[in-house]
């Protein structure tokens, strides 16, 4: 199938939902017990929308990103759930089928592009590598002219000069490398782009530039994007929806404007309160306590443990309003209010 045909078939099968994640679980088996790094996460995202998943280090956000790509490595394993993209549950596929889905349907913009590019390979070959592997195997090799054209187009889309094609990663700045990573991720017009802290190593001005490029490409492809990060500012600027993770669980998910204006879960509330702003000086309020340890975490509310309370039973996932859900715990609901 050529790229063009594929793109049209993609929009034809477009049911509105880009990705549907149901009760996804990623467990790490350790000598001390099971670590539930992702503990029953569910969310769905419409085609063409942007969602951010935020949380502290250890909240499971990067583990979740890897699981969406089915790149979870031992001792981690996907312990259950569904990841449905284009009507297909990715977790049902065998290894080879899944390999072909990556880049084609779901693509990753990795954290720290500096380490994800091959240092001894020219940029043009890295851009073509995925394309070769996925569509032009065997007989119909691309002609030299086609190659040059494709590379130039990809580079152009991420605002890089054609000359970059002949360069090696060490000759590029951090921002340029991240752009190359974005070019690779979008080279096959995926339905879903998973961006794992794509700009955490960049300066603010460069970050803004790179994010604008990523956003423009995503809109052009009408792809859904899942942005993993800890920078609430970036989330507020970039996404349509936000999911807040705590101790491997999604505690709140909703439209960015609603969640920032009236967060419903106490953890989200404190997270937003603890952010310094440029508009007014205020007393610093950190979030008290320490993030929960995921080892043998009890069923009940994880945030209660942080503030020295307890809820023994599993807490429900409830709808507040359209698109806005929280893990509702009666014990800590009004904490920090």
């Amino acid at each position: 199938m050529t790229t063009k045909q594929k793109a049209s078939s993609k929009s034809a099968s477009n049911s509105g939902i880009g990705i549907d994640v149901k009760d996804l679980k990623v467990h790490y088996d350790t000598p001390d017990g099971v670590v539930k790094a992702v503990d029953g996460v569910s969310f769905s995202l419409r085609q063409g929308e942007r969602m951010a998943l935020v949380g502290e280090s250890g909240s499971g956000k990067s583990t979740l990103a890897m699981a969406l790509m089915r790149l979870t490595r031992a001792p981690g394993r996907i312990a259950g759930g569904q990841v449905i993209v284009g009507g297909q549950d990715m977790l049902d596929l065998d290894e080879e089928e899944m390999r072909l889905q990556r880049l084609n349907e779901v693509a990753l913009v990795p954290q720290g592009a500096m380490n994800s590019l091959n240092p001894v390979m020219k940029i043009k070959n890295q851009l073509l590598d995925g394309l070769y592997d996925h569509q032009v195997r065997g007989d119909d090799k691309m002609s030299k002219e086609d190659q040059i054209q494709v590379v130039e187009k990809l580079l152009n889309a991420v605002d890089l000069a054609p000359g970059v094609a002949e360069m090696y990663p060490h000759e590029l700045s951090g921002g340029m490398k991240q752009r190359v990573a974005i070019a690779i991720a979008t080279s096959m017009q995926p339905r879903i782009i998973v961006a794992d802290e794509p700009t955490s190593a960049l300066d603010v001005v460069v970050q803004r530039n790179v994010m604008q490029t990523l956003g423009r490409l995503q809109e052009g492809l009408h792809a859904s994007i899942i942005l993993i990060g800890h920078d609430m500012g970036l989330v507020a600027q970039f996404s349509d929806h936000v999911g807040v993770m705590y101790a491997g669980r999604l505690v709140e998910v909703g439209p960015v404007k609603t969640v920032f204006k009236s967060p419903k879960h106490p953890y989200t509330r404190l997270l937003i309160k603890s952010l310094p702003t440029l508009s007014n000086k205020k007393e610093f309020v950190g979030i008290p306590g320490l993030p929960a340890t995921l080892l043998n975490l009890p069923e009940g509310c994880a945030f209660c443990l942080r503030i020295g309370k307890e809820t023994p039973t599993k807490i429900p996932w409830v709808k507040v309003e359209k698109d806005h859900f929280i893990q509702e715990c009666k014990t800590c609901a009004n904490y920090g209010n």
Binding site: V204, R208, G233, A236, Q237, T277
Partner: peptide
């Protein structure tokens, strides 16, 4: 911060992603 005079300071402040979805970043032409 509130009244930056140098264009670099202005660009820097303009590029900061503020944690407020209603205040859009990146108004300046790079």
């Amino acid at each position: 911060i509130k009244k930056p005079k140098h264009p670099y300071t202005q660009l820097l402040i303009d590029s900061i992603p503020e944690a407020d979805p209603n205040k859009k970043w990146g108004k300046l032409d790079m």
